[in-house]
Design a protein around this nucleic acid. Structure first.
Length: 494
RNA sequence: GGGCCGGUAGCUCAGUCUGGUCAGAGCAUCGGACUUUUAAUCCGAGUGUCCUGGGUUCGAAUCCCAGCCGGCCCA
């Protein structure tokens, strides 16, 4: 702590001592408020509307944080904020003969309980005329500046509590996120899915193309991983006869951090027996559309300067056709790495980082197709090489029944008709393992023998889905950075 | 991993190009005035690891190098 900062803290600690010397506990165990700020304001307004010429209310007790003082000698105004809103307090010496001097030992940032009748000042502001007040928690560090608030992005992430105190927008996003998650839950439950919890610590980090975090369990003396997806455990449950399951939870990927990626993020996954990817597509549309209605009140959101309309149906776009249209490349005709790489180079797509055929296609899609997918849309029917857990199409065994949803040029979901043929599934895992060995690529999906045994016991026809919750919150809140929708984003240690 | 931008008081920011009364402002804090203010107002005061470490120079917040942290773009 710097000299000056410690000086500011020291002054507040002195006030703390002065409060205690008066016999006041600056950190009482409890305080019963009669009204939230919102309720108190509503009470006064309804009292006014009842037609009395002198609107009066019973005494209210409110509690909250003091965010500003306006001292005027023998009267002092203060603004008090709680979770529901802000209300002005007026302290007048003649109303507080014993307590008024105590104000000198209060600071911006302190939590206070205040009791008194409500009235309207001559400028029209509803105000508590304080007759009694109680220190609820003395703050010994100063709050950010009252007008600009906390602006420094790094401080906002590292000390999110200060961001929440200072910035209305941060509070809005936190609440919006909660509404989205609970809306997703209600939607899934309304369709008779049951919510389950599967392991976060897993022996095999399978189920997605991703680099896992590793850890070690001491008692078992074995390496464990943080899950990169929920997928394989949820499918085990479908094998077990839980026909409609979903999980909302963190998954962890040990990869780069940027605008769209945090190492831990929240994913909804669902699996539904007797459904295929067409059913899942309809469900995604319904889910997202109903969420917009529920939390935004409109199917149209403004994002990155564009209006995005989530009203179903969203176009189904054939992946290979889209690639042809936007790059001129026919990936199905170039089923080897080098020819595809050469074709991509010739149209100006950077390929130096890509080693596998699937990786090249992925790059081609993100470079040429995704930027065009502004309005909600689905890309359907992916090459089998990049989809080791999806079921092949009956009419073309090079493709699988898989789709991804895109909005504003970014992916929001990934889904397929699940591969339930245990022989094919084993072969696909073996291909992934071979690719990993060949390219030394830790991102390739992993053989999960225990999962294969489950599938060998018979998995019904099933449609599965993964939706990135963080992406939805970004879209709904209008923020292009995942760090704005995650309360505590990952940062380097200082 | 590469490029660009940023880091100055508790907070919000000037000052850096052009090295030399450049250690500044506002808010906050402290003292004083004020009983209907609301970014209250008025008078007065204190406050710094100029991100860190080197270097150049008579002299560095300012120029150079390296590093740390953050942001954006690219990979």
């Amino acid at each position: 702590m710097s000299e000056l900062e410690s000086e500011l803290v020291r002054r507040r600690l002195t006030k703390l001592d002065k409060l205690r010397a008066r016999g006041i506990d600056p950190y009482p165990h409890r305080y019963r408020r009669s009204h939230t700020v919102r309720q108190a304001l509503d009470l006064f307004v309804s009292s006014e509307q009842s037609g009395a010429c002198e609107p009066t209310t019973d005494t209210v007790s409110v509690g909250g944080r003091i965010i500003v003082f306006r001292g005027m000698g023998r009267a002092t105004f203060a603004d008090l904020v709680d979770g529901s809103g802000r209300v002005q307090l007026l302290f007048r010496r003649n109303n507080l003969p014993d307590l008024y001097d105590l104000l000198a030992d209060l600071d911006i940032g302190d939590w206070l309980g205040a009791t008194g009748p409500l009235f309207r000042t001559r400028t029209g502001e509803i105000t508590v005329e304080v007759r009694k007040f109680t220190v609820l928690s003395k703050a010994i560090r100063p709050l950010p500046e009252k007008f600009h608030g906390l602006v420094d992005v790094e401080s906002r992430y590292r000390q999110r509590y200060l961001d929440l105190i200072s910035n209305e927008e941060s509070r809005r996003v936190a609440v919006l996120r909660s509404r989205i998650v609970s809306g997703v839950r209600r939607f899934m439950e309304s369709r008779d899915f049951i919510e389950v919890e599967t392991p976060t610590l897993v022996p095999v980090a399978a189920g997605a193309t991703a680099h896992p975090f590793e850890t070690h369990h001491r008692a078992l003396d074995r390496k464990l991983y943080l899950r990169v997806a929920h997928e394989l455990y949820l499918k085990r449950l479908v094998v077990g006869g839980l026909e409609k399951v979903f999980e909302i939870g963190k998954v962890f990927r040990n990869e780069g951090i940027d605008l769209m990626h945090n190492p831990e993020f929240t994913m909804l996954e669902s699996y539904e027996a007797f459904a295929d990817y067409n059913d899942v597509m309809s469900m995604v549309e319904d889910l997202v559309y109903s969420l917009t209605a529920e939390v935004l009140g409109s199917p149209v959101v403004e994002y990155d300067g564009r209006s995005i309309d989530f009203t179903p149906p969203w176009p189904r776009l054939d992946l290979c056709a889209q690639i042809r249209e936007h790059s001129g490349i026919d990936i199905l005709a170039l089923n080897d790495i080098e020819p595809l790489k050469a074709a991509m180079k010739s149209v100006g797509v950077e390929v130096s980082q890509q080693r596998s055929w699937g990786g090249l296609v992925d790059k081609l899609v993100s470079a040429r197709v995704e930027p065009n997918l502004i309005q909600p849309s689905f890309l359907v029917d992916y090459p089998v090489e990049m989809s080791p857990l999806a079921k092949r199409r009956t009419d073309d065994s090079r493709l699988v029944e898989r789709f991804e949803g895109f909005v504003a040029g970014g992916e929001i979901c990934n889904a397929f008709t699940e591969l339930n043929d245990p022989v094919d599934q084993r072969a696909r895992f073996e291909e992934q393992e071979a690719l990993r060995d060949r390219f030394h690529d830790e991102e390739m999906d992993r053989m999960d023998e225990d999962f294969l045994v489950a599938v060998e016991h018979g998995m019904p026809p099933t449609g599965g889905l993964g939706i990135g919750i963080d992406r939805l919150v970004m879209l709904f809140s209008g923020h292009p950075s995942i760090r704005e929708v995650v309360l505590f984003p990952q940062l380097r240690s200082r």
